[in-house]
Structures are given as C-alpha cells and as structure tokens.
Design a protein around this nucleic acid. Sequence first.
DNA 1: AAGGGGTGCAACCGCTGCGGG
DNA 2: TCCCGCAGCGGTTGCACCCCT
Length: 453
Amino acid sequence: MSYTMVTDESDDAMYSSIYNESPSAADNIGSGCTSRGKGSVLKKGPWTSTEDGILIDYVKRHGEGNWNTVQKHTSLARCGKSCRLRWANHLRPNLKKGAFSKEEEQLIVEMHARMGNKWAQMAEHLPGRTDNEIKNYWNTRIKRRQRAGLPLYPPGTHVEDLHWSQEYHPSTSNVTGVDRRRHQDILQLANSKANVLFDDLNFANVLFEDLNFATSLLPVASHISDMFSCNMLGTGASSSSRYESYTPPILPSPKQLGGSGSLFNIRQEFQSPQKNPRSCSISDHPMYGNHHQSDVMIQDSHHTFTDGMVPTSKPLFGAVKLELPSFQYSEASGFDQWKTTTPSPPQSDLLDSVDTYIQSPPPLEIDEPDCFSSCDTGLLDMLLHEAKIKASAKHSFSSTACITDGTQDVPRGGETHNITSGAGGNSSGEIKVYSLIGCKGTVFGVLYLRVPL
DNA sequence: AAGGGGTGCAACCGCTGCGGG
DNA sequence: TCCCGCAGCGGTTGCACCCCT
C-alpha cells in the first residue's frame, strides 16, 4: 500500500485558515517545534505540495542543513526539524520508493541481527532508503511475525558473535549521560564474559556463574536475565506501544554451540506439539540438560504485576530502560567487517527459509491469567509454570519449587545458599539464587537453581 | 452496504551528542 | 567549564486506507 500524505494545493487555503482561526490550531503546535517564525505559529501535520516546493527551492538555493533558518528565509511555517525530516524522507533526490526488494529485506534482517535498532546505520547500507522506512518495515515485520508465532530471525541469519549493542538507552527519566557511559562500559565487560559463557557447554552452571557475576554489575544483569527469560525461547516482547517491543534473540552462535544448534532449532523443540513448552524444564532439553540436573525454582514476585502485561512495579535500580541485547556489532565498522567477511547465506534464499520455517505449531493456550502475558513466551514463563506446578504439589521451600508472594525477604543478587532438601531428603544441593529482571528493568522474580553437590 | 478493526506510512516527540560562544 | 542551539536518532502516534465480517 502506498499513498501520499501530501495534500493538494487547495488544502493550503484550508490549512492557513485552520491555523489562523481555529482554536484547535494551538493544539497543533508541536512541543518539539516551539519556535515561532515571523510571529506565526508553526504548522504541523501532512505537508502540502506547495510546502514541498518551497522546501525544495530552499535546499536548491541554500543546500541542506540550517533547517531552522528555513522559516526565516521562506514563507514556510514549519520548524527545522519538520523540514529536515520531510527532506530526508521524501524530497531529497535518489530516494527509492516502493516496496523493499527481496535483497533489501534480506539485508535488513541480517543487519538487524547485528546492529539492533540502528536504523540510520542500516540506511547507510541501503541506498535510497531512509531510516524511517526501514524502521517501519521492521516494526511491521515484528508485528507480523509475532502474530504468526515466528522467530524474528530466520535460521540462516548469521549470528556469529555474541555482541549486543553498546548503546545503552536509558529511559526518559533519571539516567545521566555519565551513567549511560558507565553502563556501556559495564556492558562491554559483561559482553566479554558472555562470550566466555557460551563457550562452555556446561551451560547452566556457567550461565549462572556468569549471571552471578553480572548481577553484581547491575543493571547489566538485567540484560542477561532478559536474555535468558525472554529471548531464548520466545520473541521476548513487552508491549509499550502499538507494536510489541522487540527483543533480539540472544543465543550462542551455532559455532559456539558446537554445531548445528540454533535458536530456532531449540525453539522448535520446545514448541513441538508433543511437549507442552510450559511444562518442560531446562534439563529436559538435551543441550541444557544432562550436564547438570539442576532444579529450577522461581520465586514469583507477583505484586510486581498489574494486569499481567508488563511489570509495573518500581524498578529496583532506577528507571532504567534497557537496550535490548542482540547479536550485534556495536559499530558500523563491525557491520562492514561482517559484510565483507561473511559469505552469503548457504540456503537458497534467506527469506525463503523464513517462509519454510513458518511451520511452528500455533501458540498453545495459556490457562494462567496471572503473572505473565502471552507475549512473554520465554523460558521464564516455562520456569514459572513448572515452579508453580511443583509448588502446588509440595508447598515447601525445601521442594524444588518455591512460590511466594514476593513480600518475603528473599535472597537475591546471586547469593548462594546451601539448602538441604527436606521433602524427600534425598537431594541436597547448593542453591543459587538470582534475581530475575525483566525487560523494563523490573525485578519480577527470583530464580533458584539447585546444583547437586 | 456498513462499520470496525487491522495495516502501513508519515510525521511528531523526546532525547542525546556535538560544536560554538 | 558551562550553556545553548542544532542535527540526528529512535520510539511513538496519527490517520488514511484496506479488509473482513
């Protein structure tokens, strides 16, 4: 579907009328464009062809840049921001319009697997395309694939390194630039740890050792927890807008996993109709199991949830909006390097492989209205589910599952406790306790991992 | 045929980084 | 060093059009 938002010439009169007389015109002043040129209010909304012509003429005479002077030198009642956006997205020459080609789509998928939401950087690699276009395309893709219960990345997507974005995007609140830089440093540190982490097939043990490490470096731990709770098996979304927020999958590369393992294979297994994904445990999976038959317990801080969609409790470490981790090169140069060193996908066509992969069974019905929404179809859900089942059966902390109302004073932050199982009396072990921190940096549970002695 | 929800594009908003004064 | 303005970026929203019931 393609249509233009440019109104015809007759609209100009209408708009000028509106903006000069309508009481609601004042509401149309963007807070992001607060300046008022020539004593008139700045216009918002769709551009008219007349305005386009004025802007094009201005750029021809003055060149790009100095967008805030446009309204001074022309009759255009638009703020500089709006002018820049209009020019960059619609008016500048050599813009490619129309649907993305298959090659472009493939490139976007692969770039996103490595860059994350770096739309501007992606646009540099797609001549004629704008960051806005790419962003819209990706959001649409996310929505479509989440609806279909598909992984965001096809199996052939190159995921060669466990990089996630160095960019640490704080929320709009109280994280300073200094904090951000520190978080980036921490991220890099944790990143290196994570690489080590996945090199070891003693997955659970190493994972949680590193989680322990990372927890001490909060909020980095939230990245790792997110990675574990949201990404491993699901699309990892928390909805804050019309589109589900996207969480790039974090997994060791096939190479790091020692072969053919991939996110998608794992996901497929867990979603096989023969096995309820919500009732399997880590140890059920050949990759995660066998090495350590660790029981998992979840302490569910249910008070941190409201309607089951998004944890809304007060974030533990300040209002920190976490950049979603991804297998990303942190810099464009990294992508360049990847692009030059990475062979073409071996499969016939990456996008074809996407389609052929669209065979996952439909999402199972979830009969647990509490705690988690269906959008958080990650491992954490499974763990919680399992823990609840066990908890209802044993009602004891000494059992392998423990659910509380979250008001207890529970250990967190990777503390280790030696606990002897009391129920059966046959399974003593070391209990490792980890905070589970959600996509928004909210602590929503405590995970207990019993490592047999 | 109608209308309500879904979809996709365009534009806005808020924030950050950077450079100049 | 601090402040301010500008450019740019990514997230979010508005809205016209599409499609299904």
